[in-house]
Simulated scan of single mutants.
Amino acid sequence: MSNIHIGISKENRLKIAEGLKHLLADSYTLYLQTHNFHWNVAGPQFRVLHLMFEEHYTELALAVDDIAERIRTLDVAAPGTFKEFERLSTIKEVEGVPSASKMVDLLTKGHEQVVKTSRQVLKLAQEANDESTVALVSDRMRIHEKTSWMLREMTR
């Protein structure tokens, strides 16, 4: 680590970055899952889900970059391999191609998990007065809460 002076101790930067690594891994795993489902969705809701999943994975692609760059701003290396993401993520890969309704259910749970991971990082960032990470994570929570709500509404 460099000797940087941004008002956050090295110890707190390491703790926050470790939390952000988990958020990055969850977000990237959710991105891959969403993209996979976009390619493979079938059934009566094909068009709606195909387009919705595209919106979601496009948003997630930008998010993972923001999260990784925040980790780097804290002067910590960002994970970037499937092996690291698998180890860090609480969202597990899906085998095969589930039904469209199962895809919606899995993605709903995935977005809810990202919210829970975000809450853990948010607490660390708040305790360290790291407003930049607080803002980033708060924005991610809001987006994932709204997305999970929209996905839940698909099953009513």
Rank of each mutant, 00 (worst) to 15 (best):
M1I: 09
S2D: 13
S2R: 15
N3S: 13
N3G: 06
H5N: 15
S9Y: 05
E11G: 02
E11L: 12
N12W: 00
L14P: 00
L14M: 09
I16F: 03
I16M: 05
I16Q: 01
A17R: 03
A17L: 06
E18C: 02
L20F: 11
K21V: 06
H22A: 15
L23P: 03
L24E: 07
D26G: 04
Y28H: 15
L30T: 11
N36K: 15
F37V: 00
F37W: 08
W39R: 11
N40S: 04
P44C: 01
P44H: 11
Q45E: 14
H50W: 07
H50C: 04
H50A: 04
M52G: 11
E54H: 12
E54G: 15
E55N: 13
Y57C: 12
A63Y: 00
D66L: 12
I67R: 02
I67G: 05
A68L: 06
R70M: 10
I71G: 10
I71A: 12
R72T: 09
R72Y: 03
T73Q: 12
L74S: 09
L74V: 09
D75E: 14
A78K: 07
T81R: 13
F82P: 03
K83F: 11
E84F: 12
F85K: 02
E86A: 15
E86V: 15
R87K: 14
S89T: 06
I91H: 07
E93T: 07
E95G: 12
G96M: 04
G96A: 01
G96Y: 02
P98E: 12
S99L: 08
A100I: 04
S101F: 05
S101A: 06
K102C: 00
M103G: 08
V104E: 07
D105F: 06
L106Y: 08
L106A: 05
L107P: 03
Q113R: 14
Q113I: 00
Q113S: 09
V114E: 11
T117L: 03
Q120P: 01
Q120M: 11
V121L: 06
K123M: 07
A125E: 04
Q126K: 13
Q126I: 09
E127C: 10
A128S: 10
D130E: 03
E131T: 06
S132V: 10
T133E: 03
V137Y: 00
D139L: 02
D139S: 13
R142C: 01
H144T: 04
K146T: 10
S148C: 09
W149V: 04
W149A: 07
M150N: 10
E153L: 01
E153H: 05
M154N: 14
